[in-house]
């Protein structure tokens, strides 16, 4: 097979897969501009475009509020996870203490615990602490990540040890070493963890679903389902809301591509 033919075939296949990935999104976008009567018809392009569907989403449910809630909760979880994980990673990667690596292995093993096992006790704990139906109850239980500790530890191990000695000679204590020397150097790793955490919590569904009863605390995935209720399904508005839901993710994705790829490669390095 000549190289030219081979490349043409490759491009054809790649385009085919790319279309498969894209067409559902396109369908989502087109449906979001249709009038309700046309949703159940098969013309892919709306006969009359209805951009006001997007306005209606904001009018019929507190969509702006849900937007804020989702972003607010994800931002807080991300901040706290980065802080607690980087501190723990520092202890595992840059401090010498006995049994350190055994304790770390124990940490890793907990990655295997399924979320469903801890879900029920965490719920009852929230009931006992009167944190049901609150921002705190949504944020705090998600702010501690064994995965994050693992990811950052791997990253911190790549920073030369000579820096620690230099900082010590300059009279820095361990906190200063952590905050002023190591953290700034760990920025790419932190950004990766922040992205993963933000993505995961922005879309989180289960925990808000069981925790939240009040309308004004709902997040996007739970709030959007209003348009999917058995009485009065409005698929066009549902699609408009879904599209607006993923817009921040797409923006984030485009801005952060290189960090994502690097982060995933880092995760592949054996501990």
């Amino acid at each position: 097979m000549s190289a030219k033919l081979r490349n043409t075939l490759l491009y054809l296949l790649l385009t085919l897969f790319a279309l498969t990935a894209l067409i559902p999104f396109l369908w989502m976008a087109l449906t979001s501009f249709k009038p309700l009567e046309e949703v159940e018809k098969l013309n892919p392009v709306p006969t009359v475009w209805h951009p006001e569907n997007y306005r209606k989403v904001f009018e019929q449910i507190s969509f702006a509020r849900y937007y804020f809630n989702s972003l607010f909760i994800a931002a807080w979880v991300t901040f706290l996870t980065c802080l607690t994980s980087s501190m723990a990673a520092f202890a595992f990667a840059r401090l010498q203490w006995r049994q350190r690596d055994n304790v770390f292995r124990l940490y890793l093993a907990t990655l295997m615990i399924p979320g469903v096992v801890t879900m029920i006790p965490n719920y009852t704990l929230m009931v006992k602490l009167h944190l049901l139906d609150s921002y705190t109850g949504l944020i705090v239980p998600s702010a501690f990540s064994a995965f994050g500790t693992f990811l950052l530890r791997q990253f911190l191990l790549t920073i030369p040890a000579a820096l620690d000695e230099a900082a010590e000679i300059d009279g820095a204590n361990k906190w200063q070493l952590f905050w002023d020397v190591i953290l700034p150097l760990a920025r790419p790793g932190l950004i990766t963890l922040a992205l993963f955490t933000f993505m995961g919590n922005y879309g989180s569904f289960f925990w808000p679903l069981v925790m939240i009863k009040s309308e004004h605390l709902r997040t996007l995935p739970t709030g959007m389902l209003f348009f999917d209720s058995t009485y009065g399904r409005q698929t066009n508005l549902l699609m408009a809301a879904s599209l607006m839901n993923i817009v921040p993710l797409i923006v984030l994705f485009i801005v952060s591509q290189k960090f994502l790829v690097r982060g995933i490669q880092m995760g592949a390095v054996k501990g």
Binding site: L83, T84, S85, M87, A88, F90, A91, L95, Q96, W97, R98, R100, Y107, T110, I113, V117, T118, I120, P121, N122, T124, L125, V140, P141, A143, F144, A146, T149, K174, F178
Partner: peptide
């Protein structure tokens, strides 16, 4: 190592507390 152990515990504490409260505690509880 002994000196660093206390520092390490300090750094681990936030994560460890959360871990005990929201992961290992719940596993046993359930």
């Amino acid at each position: 190592e002994r000196r660093d152990l206390w520092v390490a515990i300090g750094f681990l504490l936030p994560n460890l507390l959360g871990f005990l409260l929201f992961t290992s505690g719940p596993v046993l509880f359930s």
